[in-house]
Design a protein around this nucleic acid. Sequence first.
DNA 1: GATGAATGAGCCTTCATTCAT
DNA 2: CATGAATGAAGGCTCATTCAT
Lengths: 190, 190, 190, 190
Amino acid sequence: MKPKDESKIDEIFAATLELVKEHGLSGITVNMIAKKAGFATGTVYIYFENKEQLIVKLFEKCFYAYAKDYFQGFDAAAPFKVAFHTIWMNMLRISVEHFSELIFIEQCFHSPFISDETRASSKEILVPWRNLLDRGKSERLIKQVDTIWIMAYVRGVIREMVKFIKYNHVEMTPEFVNTMFDMCWDGIKD
Amino acid sequence: MKPKDESKIDEIFAATLELVKEHGLSGITVNMIAKKAGFATGTVYIYFENKEQLIVKLFEKCFYAYAKDYFQGFDAAAPFKVAFHTIWMNMLRISVEHFSELIFIEQCFHSPFISDETRASSKEILVPWRNLLDRGKSERLIKQVDTIWIMAYVRGVIREMVKFIKYNHVEMTPEFVNTMFDMCWDGIKD
Amino acid sequence: MKPKDESKIDEIFAATLELVKEHGLSGITVNMIAKKAGFATGTVYIYFENKEQLIVKLFEKCFYAYAKDYFQGFDAAAPFKVAFHTIWMNMLRISVEHFSELIFIEQCFHSPFISDETRASSKEILVPWRNLLDRGKSERLIKQVDTIWIMAYVRGVIREMVKFIKYNHVEMTPEFVNTMFDMCWDGIKD
Amino acid sequence: MKPKDESKIDEIFAATLELVKEHGLSGITVNMIAKKAGFATGTVYIYFENKEQLIVKLFEKCFYAYAKDYFQGFDAAAPFKVAFHTIWMNMLRISVEHFSELIFIEQCFHSPFISDETRASSKEILVPWRNLLDRGKSERLIKQVDTIWIMAYVRGVIREMVKFIKYNHVEMTPEFVNTMFDMCWDGIKD
DNA sequence: GATGAATGAGCCTTCATTCAT
DNA sequence: CATGAATGAAGGCTCATTCAT
């Protein structure tokens, strides 16, 4: 169940993401995935037990990938706003670059594929982010609001920005990014 | 003679929303919908030509319903922040009360059911909201940012709040609502 | 099961014949029949127990109607060729006038609706025709061939003529009828 | 790799013909066809897009098959009556051997499956037969009747003979065949 | 009696999965 | 390993039949 040609898994994943973005989770078939990835239907079943496992594994991978990159260049010792900015920018960039993944995860959340445990376990990877915000609160730089709500607030702002960029094929200029960061920051700063 | 009972349409819609929230668009069948609504499969086909039409019609209805209620109690002559608050509160309340619709619309966006035209036409109903924000900008009460971005910002904040409330079964206290409104307002105020 | 409004039965029959001619036995539904006849689906079930009975009863009626008219103006005492001509002309005229019935019967022959008994019992009504041909044989006016084959021969000639007339929208001139009668007669005459 | 087994098409065709002969076009399902042919329902859809296409393709094949064999052993240089006899015998033999096809075509003629174009295009294959009859007319061996009517006459005689043979499980003796040929010939000879 | 909405068994078709090559 | 034909369970939809009005 773990053959050497690991690259095929990535091709299957890429095809799946692309197709879900275009047709939604309800609009894809294993055959479509195989065709798009460039091989026969049966080949998919060499690398995955079944369709559900393919979806679940991709779901997990997407979350892991996000986690890894969110904290790129993040220095816990840096001043709060600097650190916040670093992660914020990472989140924005990754969400744009991996828009398919974002859509895929959204579609999976309400689907028979993803179990409650899978959903729950996906939160742990954001611990450093939560810790940073807690620090911001203790340094009285941001509002004394339950950290979890601040996370939701930031997530919401970024997510909707990205969707708008993607759906309307808008260019993401530095100027615009700065403006949006300011809005986001002004909302939470003390 | 038994007349066509148009109220059945609403029961079918309600059942569909509930099921999509629980299983996603990819996890529902016409049979499930009929069962949940309390009648036979064939009955659904008396009121809708096929599954696609059922989804599309529900999609349109959801958008229309939202539009109507967003502007409940809205007085265009009121001071900007008062008007903004009215609509903001409506948006929050409606999104919570009609969470199923919110999820349904989200799932539909990437699905074979909704055409690009349908997606596009859904924007017009928000014109009064856009006008209000334009006024806020001209009164120098909110930032000189493209209105469309402010709309995305507000939508993102509210949407993520509601999701969090719903997924974590959190109570929505007035205190919490005020805090979130302040964050949202602070983000855009000039 | 035998209500007074007998005329509705005829309207149902007429609608069925017309529809079978156009769409074949496999292409019709009870709803289509009711619509074409001008009333509601349920009404059909007041006059017939079910679809099968409707078909069977119509099948029987068609055969009976044929029988009755085949022998119109037939005088058993007339010279053989005169009597033969009378019936032959009746057969031709009826087949043209009731082309829908002809097609209906043809379609029914290979269908789950008509039982072997129904098929078999339909032969009895042609006894006078058979007797006439037997007489023609004993008078040495027609060939000494098994009567049943002569019947098949005549039936085949007429049937194919009628089909051709109908499918190609050809006018049936007296001249043409005479020619075809001569061909038919020359084939069997001694 | 298992290559597409085109011979399955013939098995599907054979099963369909057999079933239509027994139950009529209105009495068959794709499932019945698959079962009779010996494989799963889905297999039919590897070789045909849908039920309609299966019927249409079979219809076309039947017509082509007929055409090919009608002219077996036919020598255009032979004396007229010899050539006529050759084709007549072929027609009889083929109609008996391929009785299922004959019934299938008859049922298709009035069905939602066969388009007018398909019906029309099926006539061209009989051109050599028409030419032969024209020659017979110019040689004054057969009656000066529109060739198309002679074709209908011959077709009718043969068709009804074959039906009778099949429906009554009668043996087709050479003696009987000769008798019928004589009747057919006497009908058209000058 | 007449209506046509409601029912659900059954048909056509799809698609996840298997398996022979 | 890779392939794609074969499988058959399950979904969308139709339609014969029933039933409330």
